[in-house]
Design a protein around this nucleic acid. Structure first.
Lengths: 238, 238
DNA sequence: GTCTATACAACGATAGAC
DNA sequence: GTCTATCGTTGTATAGAC
C-alpha cells in the first residue's frame, strides 16, 4: 500500500495491493485497542469471532435488538468471556466503528497522495471506495446502519467521516472545473456539491444493497464502470 | 388525485394535487386498522401524536432502542393509554409500515395510468417519488431504517415494495430502449436494471440524508432536476 | 377512554471459582 | 483466560380503578 495507483484499477489488483488478510486485519484491531488479554493468538481469533458474530446478528436484527446472550451463543463464548474483550455493549459498537474509520482513512489518504488529473482522481476515488466497501461489506453496512447507537462524541466523528468522502469528491469536481476537464452549466459550487452527494449515494448503495447485486451477479467492477459512466458522462457533457 | 399529470411537475403542484392534510391522512390510518377507540376525533388526534413521537424518538435512537416509557413521556399519554392504540411495540412498527406502503401504492399507481412516452414517464416517476418522500420524510426514513424490526411476513412485503419502484423504473427504461427514446451501448437488460438501481439509490438519498440537504438549502425541485439530468443524460447519450 | 400500580421476563453487567 | 452463578435494573405488557 505505497506505490502509485495504476491508471485502470480492477477489484483484483486493488485487493492484491491492499493485501487485506483476516489475520493481519484483526491483528491491527488487537494492536489498536489495549485489551486485557495478553495472548495475542487467542485474542485475535476471538476478536474475529466476536466481530463476525456481531455482524451476523446485528445486520439481521439490528444492533440494539441483538442481545449479549445471543452474541454469547453465536460466538460460543460465555458472557464473562465476552466481557474480557469489551467494556460494555456500546463499547463493542464503538470498537467496530472506530477501527473501520481509522483503517479507511489510512487506505484512502494513501490513494489521493498521487497528483493525478481531476477525472483520473475521480475515477480512482469511485473505484477505491467501492472496492474497499466490497472487501469490508459487513463493516460498512454496520457503520451506516448503527451510527444511531454511538455515543455523542463518536456520532460526531461518524458524521464527519461520512462527509469527508463527499468533500474529497467535491474538491475533485471543482478542480476538474478549474482545469476545464469538466463542464457544468450553469456552473456553481452548490451544483458541484450536489453531484458529489449523488455519487456518494450510488457508492453507498453498493454495500447497503449488496444482497441484491450479488443475487443479480453484478460484479463490483461492472458497478464501478456504471457509476463512472454516469458521473463522468454528466461532468464531461456539460 | 385523479386527472392526468401535467408535463412539468413541481413540488408545489404535486402537493396541491395529492392534497395531503394531517387530518385526512391520519383519518385514513384510523379507517384502515380497526381500533378499539370508538371516538374518531380523539383517536385521530392521538394516532398523530403517537406516530410523530415515534418518528422523533426512533429516528434519533432507533426503534428498538426507543422504549415505550419514553414514548409515553413524549406523547404525554400513559403506558395504559398507549396500549389502547397498539397491541404491542412490534405492532406499532407494522402499523406505520403497512399504512405507508398502502398509501404510496395508491398514489404511484394513480400516476402511471397515463400512457406517456418513456422519457416523460421516467421524469414523472422520479419527481413523484421525490415529492412523496418529501411530504412524508419521517415515514420513509423510518420504513427504510426499521425494516429489520418487522415480522418475517411484513419483511417480505417490505422487500417487494422496495423492489416495485425499481421494477417500474426498469420497465420504463426498457420501453424507452424499444421506442429508441433511449440508447445504451452495449444494450442489455442487466445494464438497464443497474441504471434503475442507481436512480433509486439517488431517490432514497433524498429522505435518508434530508438533514444534509435542508442545511445546504437544496430544494426538492433542484434535487429532482439534477437526478433527471444525470439519468436522462446517460440514457439519451448512449 | 385514560390512568396508576404492578407483574414478570429479560437485559447488561460483575464477582469469584477454576 | 474463561466459566458459572447471580445481582440490580429496566423493559414490555396488563389488571383494575376512575
Amino acid at each position: 500500500m505505497s506505490a502509485t495507483w495504476p491508471d485502470t484499477m480492477s477489484f483484483k489488483s486493488f485487493s492484491q495491493r491492499v493485501n487485506l488478510t483476516k489475520s493481519s486485519f484483526y491483528g491491527e484491531l488487537y494492536a489498536m485497542h489495549d485489551f486485557s488479554i495478553r495472548n495475542q493468538r487467542i485474542a485475535v481469533k476471538n476478536l474475529q469471532t466476536i466481530c463476525e458474530s456481531t455482524f451476523l446478528l446485528a445486520n439481521e436484527l439490528g444492533f440494539q435488538a441483538m442481545t449479549l446472550r445471543q452474541l454469547s451463543r453465536q460466538t460460543g463464548m460465555s458472557m464473562g468471556g465476552l466481557y474480557a474483550y469489551i467494556k460494555s455493549k456500546d463499547d463493542l459498537a464503538e470498537l467496530i466503528y472506530s477501527f473501520l474509520n481509522r483503517y479507511c482513512v489510512e487506505v484512502i489518504s494513501d490513494l489521493i497522495k498521487d497528483n493525478l488529473s481531476a477525472d483520473k482522481t475521480l475515477v480512482a476515488l469511485i473505484h477505491s471506495h467501492l472496492y474497499l466497501s466490497e472487501l469490508l461489506q459487513p463493516w460498512f453496512y454496520f457503520a451506516y446502519m448503527e451510527t444511531k447507537n454511538l455515543s455523542k462524541a463518536h456520532k460526531r466523528v461518524a458524521i464527519n467521516s461520512e462527509l469527508s468522502m463527499e468533500i474529497l469528491l467535491f474538491e475533485t469536481i471543482k478542480k476538474g472545473l478549474d482545469d476545464t476537464d469538466f463542464i457544468i452549466k450553469p456552473s456553481s459550487d452548490e451544483k458541484a456539491q450536489l453531484i458529489a452527494s449523488l455519487i456518494k449515494a450510488m457508492l453507498q448503495d453498493w454495500y447497503l444493497k449488496s444482497w441484491k447485486y450479488k443475487k443479480r451477479k453484478i460484479s463490483v467492477d461492472n458497478y464501478a464502470d456504471m457509476v463512472v459512466d454516469m458521473s463522468l458522462g454528466y461532468l464531461k457533457r456539460g
